[in-house]
Design a protein around this nucleic acid. Structure first.
Length: 509
RNA sequence: GCCGCGUUGGUCAAGGGGUUUAAGACGCAUCCCUUUCACGGAUGAAUCACGGGUUCGAUUCCCGUACGCGGUACCA
């Protein structure tokens, strides 16, 4: 049975994108691709005041970096264009008025102050947040409490108004969630949500239903925070279209902060020193920068892998998955119901695993541009490749390549002489003098040959080779780090190695 | 308050009535390897929220309680 799967991702360009949001997109994408369906991106920009310049571009750059290319979006014109809500505005009003005609919704003329008054007036200890619902709506100013003539006059006079759904007093609505199973709600407990705002723009509730219908969405994923308003969406489908055509819902669990409880927020990132956005994001109004995983040195493969494992696994012991494998193995039934805490240490582990796994060629450009940022322009790609091959197993994040490998491109300017001086002798100095000339005459720079030459000479001079290795390292690297010394000497070549030996011999006087 | 959703080690989690002395991973500790720093290898400490049922038997099913989270906006 060839079921056409269309899943939608509808970001609100309010600036940045939280981990939870990216994971929701990822699961959207994985499900769609697993079922060979379409992945659709629609932009929710209903509230102009919250639309931030650059945010939409940020969202698409994130998708691109992660490899989650949409099949339809404002950037890739598709069959259901336009994909920005502000460009679809006219559509929604008609559906809202259709609901009013059918007595499933009504005009409400209450001003913000009147709503505030209502909330204060009916507030009790038992009911700290009174709602605009079936118990209160006849006490408010709307087409239900007003006469037909009064309503018509107000509409003619263009009195600002919204359209609210008329929630049934006491009905049970059942939602079948792909992750949680059957969930039932009593309609009397939900307020009469605004569907169309005074400016004519739809709220999320109306837009999501209308768009999913028109875009023929078959499966819809969103965060758990939407569960409480799900009955409104079910009812809207029932009133406007048909519940049979309603997409299958999946409400994904939240990503929580590592310490304490609650949703992971931007603040947690700053407080605990890890990124919470996929890419660096600069809020244009405040100038505030939120650090991203990419700039912090994460590979997209690792980032995607890490997010997927937060709330999903395939039941096996496998933890490292490529995007292609995730698509192949993904199953919505195996998504966890409970929220999960974000663990930065584990996130770094994923990145380390991916750096080890990926071939040198795929790391090359990322490492190169990072060195450039640090002021080292690499022109010798052959050297770059050798360096990456030598150090990648010891790098957790991309910046580690700089710490582990910068000495391949720049001779040390400072030496950790303190670890050499105490045991330094004239015999050792003479060893290195002799070694330099012996090194010069080596036919082959295989690390093992360098090593045996080094050790033979040490034997001839009756010095323990081990005691000479540390000084040799300091000569080439400047400090106590990096891959095996003979490997380094091999890559550095004769001239550079000898220059560095002599340079430090000079330092040591 | 009300409504909804959750609850296996510090974290991510497998397991969904007995074969579990409850997998695996991250982190942590100890040891080995390495005369650099790492990687790697080995070992170890650490978990079924609580109370009632159902059952011969419950971590697993049911009901309560507690706790956490989410919602209760002309925000999404």
């Amino acid at each position: 049975m060839a079921k056409k799967v269309r899943v939608r991702f509808a970001p609100s360009p309010t600036g940045g994108l939280h981990l939870g949001g990216v994971r929701t997109v990822l699961f959207n994408y994985l499900f769609a691709k697993h079922h060979k369906g379409d992945f659709i991106v629609r932009i929710e920009d209903t509230d102009q005041s919250r639309f931030v310049p650059g945010a939409e571009e940020y969202i698409f750059e994130t998708l691109h970096w992660c490899g989650l290319e949409p099949d339809e979006s404002p950037l890739h014109s598709g069959s259901c264009a336009p994909y920005r809500q502000s460009e679809r505005k006219e559509l929604y009003g008609e559906y809202a008025r259709q609901l009013v005609k059918a007595d499933k919704a009504y005009y409400a003329f209450d001003m913000p102050q009147e709503l505030e008054t209502m909330r204060v007036k009916y507030k009790t200890a038992d009911n700290p947040s009174p709602q605009y619902d079936h118990r209160l709506r006849m006490k408010m100013i709307n087409s239900l409490s007003l006469t037909l003539e009064e309503t018509e006059r107000m509409l003619e006079d263009k009195v600002p108004h919204v359209i609210r759904i008329k929630m049934p007093e006491n009905e049970t609505v059942i939602l079948n969630d792909m992750i949680r199973g059957e969930i039932s709600f009593n309609t009397g407990l939900t307020d009469d949500k605004v569907l169309l705002k005074a400016d004519g723009m739809p709220t999320y509730h109306l837009a999501v239903v209308v768009d999913d219908y028109l875009m023929k969405i078959t499966h819809a994923f969103r965060g758990e925070e939407w569960l409480p308003s799900a009955p409104v969406h079910v009812l809207l489908w029932r009133y406007l279209f048909s519940e049979k055509e309603m997409p299958h819902w999946a409400h994904l669990p939240l990503i929580l902060k590592p310490d304490g409880n609650g949703k992971l927020s931007k603040r947690d990132g700053e407080r605990l020193g890890f990124p919470v956005f996929p890419l660096d994001w600069k809020d244009p109004s405040t100038g505030e920068i939120t650090r991203g995983f990419r700039e912090r040195g994460f590979l997209p493969e690792a980032f995607v892998n890490m997010l997927a494992m937060l709330g999903w696994n395939d039941g096996s012991e496998q933890e490292i998955f490529s995007l292609a494998e995730l698509i192949e193995k993904f199953s919505i039934e195996r998504v966890h119901r409970a929220g999960s805490k974000f663990d930065y240490e584990k996130a770094k582990w994923f990145n380390h695993e991916w750096i080890k796994k990926l071939p040198v060629d795929s790391l090359q450009s990322t490492v190169k541009s990072f060195f450039k940022e640090k002021g080292i322009e690499i022109n010798n790609d052959a050297l770059l490749k050798k360096m990456i091959g030598l150090v990648k197993d010891r790098c957790t994040l991309i910046p580690d390549f700089y710490d582990q490998g910068k000495f391949f491109f720049e001779a040390p300017t400072q030496w950790d002489l303190d670890s050499v001086r105490p045991k330094w002798t004239t015999e050792k100095a003479s060893f290195f003098n002799d070694f330099a000339s012996r090194f010069q005459s080596l036919k082959d720079l295989e690390p093992v040959l360098i090593e045996s030459s080094f050790k033979n000479l040490a034997g001839e001079k009756n010095i323990k080779a081990g005691e000479l290795q540390l000084p040799f390292r300091i000569m080439l690297v400047g400090e106590k780090k990096g891959p095996p010394v003979f490997e380094i000497a091999s890559v550095l070549g004769k001239d550079e190695t000898i220059r560095r030996i002599q340079n430090m011999l000079h330092q040591l006087g």
